[in-house]
């Protein structure tokens, strides 16, 4: 029979150099944003429109948690946004809640053609209060604004709810690309503003690029060490 014999001493140096090149960061700060809302309100479509400027009309339920990245420039700062798309179906909610605590910004999304999805915003918002960090920034989004004939939730209702929660509000359409960039940029601005103090402090000590989520990652590790039961990560 044959056995495999290896000598691995030579190649290591080169590949390590390659790896560090790839790792070089081309942004100043990284934020984690999270899309929440009932199944079918268009979370995945909003994300695809924002990051890839694409629209896929057929509805394929997200079964899991996925993210896409996009870099925005706000006040001359390169903000890398990592936007997490979550499964909206109820059966997965105990699991998806575990992703909240690592978010700095959250989109609460409903569908203007679904009264039910609007009513559920209360439930989503209270889960966010319970599971997300205290400082998390929120924004209310009523999607599918192009479907005027099927509208069940008036714009005023959205405005009123947003006001009650102290959130900004946008009606969007992933289909017509209405208010997409605006809403994503607004949330990113809010997150930036909320973390401004920390950022400036950090900037004074390290004039290099910084990575809010990387700082969090260390925190996360500690969390994990405290909690023996949790294996793997929920990033």
């Amino acid at each position: 029979m044959e056995a495999i014999v290896r000598d691995v001493t030579e190649k290591n140096g080169n590949t390590a150099a390659l790896a560090s090149n790839v790792m070089a960061k081309q942004y100043d700060v990284l934020f984690r944003l999270l899309l929440l809302g009932d199944s079918g309100v268009g979370k995945t479509c909003l994300l695809c429109r924002f990051t890839d400027n694409e629209f896929h009309p057929s509805h394929i339920s997200t079964i899991g948690v996925d993210f896409k990245m996009k870099t925005l420039v706000i006040d001359g700062i390169k903000v890398r946004t990592q936007i997490w798309d979550t499964a909206g179906q109820e059966r997965y909610q105990t699991i998806t809640k575990q992703y909240y605590r690592r978010a700095q910004g959250i989109f609460l999304v409903y569908d203007i053609t679904s009264e039910r999805s609007f009513q559920h915003i209360m439930k989503w918002a209270s889960d966010v209060d319970e599971y997300a960090p205290e400082k998390v920034q929120k924004i209310l989004v009523g999607n599918k604004s192009d479907e005027v004939d099927k509208r069940q939730v008036a714009t005023e209702q959205g405005v009123k709810l947003a006001k009650a929660y102290g959130m900004d509000f946008f009606e969007t359409s992933a289909f017509t690309n209405h208010n997409i960039t605006e809403s994503f940029t607004r949330l990113a601005e809010q997150v930036l503003a909320a973390n401004r103090k920390d950022l400036d402090l950090l900037r004074m000590s390290v004039n290099d690029e910084l990575d809010l989520s990387a700082l969090e990652e260390e925190e996360g590790l500690c969390d994990r060490m405290r909690d023996d039961q949790q294996k793997g990560c929920w990033c």
């Binding site: 056995a3 290896r6 000598d7 691995v8 190649k11 560090s20 790839v22 790792m23």
Partner: peptide, 25 residues
């Protein structure tokens, strides 16, 4: 990611540092 990349490169070039030898059992 770095480990993954190294692993990946190593896999690609496996022939360069791997050889097969016959043994009898």
């Amino acid at each position: 990611l770095r480990d993954n990349l190294i692993k990946c490169e190593l896999l690609k070039n496996e022939d360069q540092y791997t050889y097969l030898e016959d043994f009898s059992i």
